[in-house]
Design a protein around this nucleic acid. Structure first.
Lengths: 156, 156
DNA sequence: ATTTGTTTGACTATTTTTGACTAATAATAA
DNA sequence: TTATTATTAGTCAAAAATAGTCAAACAAAT
């Protein structure tokens, strides 16, 4: 169900840079409880994946999903480094890497290298420590890409 | 039983490069316990045999088996993985990466990514822990370079 | 007899679904 | 204007729906 709603919203977002919905309407359309929509948004339209969400309650309320657009590569990397901050979960970290790949800032091989390095099983086992170390690693890797000479190996 | 399930999955994989199953369904189909499926996968669809396995739990969960191509440099990478073992210093780790670059197994960008990830300053500060985590990271990254996924068409 | 491989099931981990309760805003009444 | 009510959306935790782990029991091979 989550996947279906996600696909529906992404399809709309392919043609428009933002989409505005009424939560109860979408819930009715897909025959699910309204809070399911929140779940979809919280797990699939995060800032790490490149989306911003605004909403308003009360009469005429809405939920608006906006595709964030960044100007260039260096801008994108800086933005991502900020988003990462001092801690990041495995899931969010993988979303960040996936986003960089989708936007052709890194190659598939680079993406895979980075994604395996985000895996929880490699760290200490203490969640707080791990999230901090993971953020350190990811920020360093992204910062490194920023100062790189023009990409010779074309992103596939 | 293991052989039968293995044969079934391999037959499907002969026609498709990947197969996605629901664990409980396959268990029911062959009238065995669900964890039998894990046994089959763990013993017959390992990365050494050229298979990659992904899965998701929860509603709409699945197990996906993907046939991958093992690359020529696989043997060398395996040797290096063994040498790394459970602990490695920053200096030795960087030498390993440098060797991969010299041998043209990784690109310059990949090398730089990996080298920054080996840096002591990113870890916990406890030398023993750090050497272990670093070894985990490096081994995982090398393991990932051993194979290549087939090009899969993206459904839109 | 010993070792190696397989089957089973209890327990754990993860992700999604659901619904009761809460919060915010708009519309309306006083 | 202010208070009240209606109309949204948000939060959170429990329940449900998956898959994973591990070790004991069992079977097969040496």
């Amino acid at each position: 169900m989550t996947d279906i709603i996600e696909a529906y919203l992404k399809k709309v977002l392919k043609q428009q840079e933002q989409v505005e919905i009424r939560r109860s309407e979408i819930a009715e359309l897909f025959d699910c409880v309204p809070s399911q929509i929140n779940y979809v948004i919280n797990t699939r339209f995060t800032i790490q994946k490149g989306y911003l969400v605004e909403s308003k309650r009360g009469g005429g309320g809405y939920i608006r999903i906006i595709k964030v657009q960044v100007l260039d590569e260096s801008d994108m990397l800086n933005t991502m480094i900020e988003i990462i901050g001092n801690n990041i979960s495995e899931r969010d970290a993988k979303s960040v890497v996936q986003k960089l790949y989708d936007d052709k800032i890194i190659s598939k091989r680079e993406a895979k290298l980075m994604i395996v390095a985000m895996d929880k099983s490699l760290y200490t086992g203490d969640r707080v420590t791990d999230n901090r170390v993971r953020a350190n690693l990811l920020r360093s890797m992204l910062a490194n890409l920023r100062y790189e000479e023009p990409n010779k190996r074309k992103a596939d």
